[in-house]
Amino acid sequence: MQRDPITTARVIAAAAAVADRAGLAAVSMRSVGRELGVEAMSLYHHVANKAALLDGLADWVFERFEPPPAEADWRTAITARTASVRAVLTAHPWALGLVDSRDHPGPAVLRHYDAVLGCLYRGGFSATTAAQAFSVLDAYAYGFALTERNLPFDAASGANDFAAELTLPTEDYPHLAHLLSTVTGAGDYSFAAQFAIGLDIILDGLERLRDG
């Protein structure tokens, strides 16, 4: 059977597959070569070195971020885009340590940044306030995805069981015990569902910043 030709896109996709399975530290020219069933040396026709491979992998991530829909108002567009960032980073947690670490951003990275800034400019933000908004939104999306990854329970439905098993002396931790009994007492608390609530709070603040 004739093997499909190796292309740069296939090399990067193979690197993403390795990272999904074993983490970013497992990505190397050799491991990607094994993923493709070829010798590592053959990859150098498509990526110059491991640094270029990681640059391409960061671009692969940004290609999966949904850009703000151009036809929507700024708040609707930014909501969709920020939710997409969180979803991609949750699906590929290794990307959290990669996407902002590269000093040679690729075309997908630059297109995405430009699209977000364009959305904010159209929404009435100045260059200064757009930069502030962009920073806050990404800090929230990245931080939320990181927290989800590290929680000792399932973010969508496991908080209630976790809280039920966590016995806290009320006299020692009165405020924390009250929060747990109040928030999880109804049995329907979902940490994942808090993302949209928190994003709305941020967007409310950005609306005031825009008007200022």
Rank of each mutant, 00 (worst) to 15 (best):
R3V: 02
I6K: 02
T7F: 07
V11Y: 06
V11Q: 02
I12A: 04
A13K: 03
A14P: 02
A19K: 02
R21W: 08
L24Y: 04
V27A: 00
S28E: 03
R30Q: 13
S31K: 07
V32W: 04
V32H: 01
R34M: 13
E39V: 13
S42V: 13
Y44M: 14
K50I: 11
K50D: 09
K50V: 13
L53W: 01
L54Q: 00
D55G: 10
G56A: 05
A58L: 01
A58T: 06
A58N: 01
D59I: 03
F62W: 09
R64T: 10
E66S: 14
E66C: 11
E66Y: 06
A70T: 14
A72H: 14
R75C: 02
T76H: 15
T76G: 12
T82V: 10
S84Q: 09
S84W: 03
V85H: 10
R86Q: 13
T90I: 09
A91I: 08
H92M: 05
G97F: 10
V99I: 04
D100R: 12
D100C: 07
S101K: 04
R102F: 00
V109Y: 03
R111K: 08
D114R: 02
A115N: 10
C119Y: 03
L120T: 01
A131R: 09
A131N: 06
A141S: 12
G143W: 05
F144C: 08
E148M: 15
N150L: 15
N150F: 11
F153I: 12
A156C: 12
A156I: 09
L166W: 08
T167L: 11
L168A: 06
H175C: 10
A177V: 05
H178N: 06
L180F: 08
S181A: 13
A186K: 12
A186R: 14
S190V: 15
F191V: 11
F191G: 14
A196N: 08
A196E: 09
G198R: 13
L199R: 01
I202T: 05
I202S: 01
I202H: 02
I202R: 02
L209Q: 14
G212S: 13
